[in-house]
Design a protein around this nucleic acid. Structure first.
Lengths: 145, 145
DNA sequence: GGACATCGTGAAGTAGATTCACTACATGAC
DNA sequence: GTCATGTAGTGAATCTACTTCACGATGTCC
């Protein structure tokens, strides 16, 4: 018998394990969680201003300055002038940065396959549906509060 | 159709949302994530030496010193002499600390109920089983590496 | 051409975390 | 007993992430 608390605890437990795997990736690449997060967002959204990165990462613009400083230093991104707004800079992935993001995506998909690849389609569908419903329910709870 | 990557992403997404809810709790209590984590461990294991806390939290003993300093200051824990080992100190929850841990447990169970309480038992069972199998598969992958 | 908002960054400070060195105590060998 | 070695906690110094506040340089709109 699975209780609601069981279910939540297991979700959190799995998430913790996956985060540990991410930490391994970070160690191998010599990058911190925050910097990898920034690279990931940059890979998803393309060249971005530091403002938009700050919004996406939910941190202050000042913090992004520091993270980008580090990533410029390690050769993962460059600061390019923004065409059309001389206040802003466009943070852009270098080849190294692109390879890092690709590697992360590959490793992520790989892990997903190894974890869920053998689950029968029907069970996986139920699993996904329950998660979806739950996430929606969560959003609803947030609105009420 | 739910793909393995979908499934993993949704798990991570839900975990992120739940963590946001935890952050709300922390703000309300005026505590940081690390300190709440320490309180939680302390609640689960009872009075502990800083060494064992360091192991449980997977941080250095020096770091525990700082966290306990803060929690002593806020009145959530006390440092008691260890009976039988004068090198060690026993970190113990105060009444306030106990109430905080209880509040966290309640809020956690509450959230779980609101998220999973309406899921039919059979679907919830499947959900729990898939998570369990996956977590075990993860442990197996770690051993191989 | 002002008034006002926006983009990035210097300065200063907080919290979590680390390593290294050191003191106090414990323990087992002799 | 005492001596060697290991363990518990902490001071000092340092790192990263993060914040707020102030400020200069641009953009925008009437």
């Amino acid at each position: 018998m699975t209780t609601p608390t069981d279910a939540l605890d297991r979700v959190l437990h799995l998430a913790t394990l996956v985060q540990a795997d991410l930490a391994r990736f970070e160690r191998e690449e010599g990058l911190s969680t925050s910097r990898v997060h920034l690279l990931w967002v940059l890979g998803a959204s393309g060249p971005s201003t530091q403002q938009s990165l700050a919004t996406a990462l939910d941190v202050t613009p000042r913090n992004v300055t520091g993270l980008v400083d580090g990533l410029v230093g390690s050769g993962h991104v460059t600061r390019e002038p923004h065409p059309g707004d001389r206040r802003a800079t466009l943070v852009t992935l270098t080849d190294l940065g692109t390879r890092t993001v690709d590697g992360l995506a590959t490793s992520h998909a790989d892990l997903a396959d190894r974890l869920f690849g053998d689950v029968p389609a029907e069970r996986l569908a139920t699993f996904g549906e329950v998660l979806d419903e739950t996430t929606q329910r969560f959003a609803q709870l947030m609105e009420e509060a």
